[in-house]
Amino acid sequence: MHISEGVLSGAVLIAGAGLSTVGVGIGIRNLDYDQIPKVGLLSAVFFVASLVHIPVGPASAHLVLSGLCGLLLGWTAFPAILVGLSLQALLFQFGGLTTLGANTFNIAFPAVVLGVTVGKLVNNENPAIRMTAEFICGAGSILFSGLLVALSLFATGKAFLPASKLVILAHIPIMLIEGLITVFVVEFVRKVRPEILSPA
């Protein structure tokens, strides 16, 4: 999911940084000071969840939960994901400094777009509709993030085309599992603490 340092070209890095700045700007404009502890703690939850390894076939993958993040936070997911990625870069050297913009955009943008559109259906009366919406948020975020990662690589150089294809393929099983997990998490939260799902 992360693109490491030194891979992307200058133009792609700048585009990523610019787009992320816009997204984060919109995000913090929607963010009240009252909500900062809540968003800060949620981004800490996503940070911790990314350390959880789940079995996928013979290998294992870590949780991303960007879809869940977009669903719960809307545009605020942009600054939350930026903070989470900065912490990962600083503490574990995952992702990186120059790629922070591109990585933030690749992960946050699909999550936010799905969160503010399809995500609105999570409070629908009909369980089939809302569970489908949750699945689309979880799985779609990973799918589109994978496509954006592949696109970033491809925009850097045509030689990255096979690597881009590999990235998309690798995202498919993770996508299905993330979709499932998002449905389970949201349905659990609905039973236990429905206030989290109601728009603040």
């Binding site: 939850v45 499932l180 389970f184 659990f188």
Partner: peptide
């Protein structure tokens, strides 16, 4: 997957209350 999801859900609930 359900168990891990409930684990994450519980973390969300606890953090929400804490915040």
């Amino acid at each position: 997957y359900r168990s891990y999801a409930y684990l994450v859900g519980m973390l969300l609930v606890k953090s929400f209350d804490r915040s």
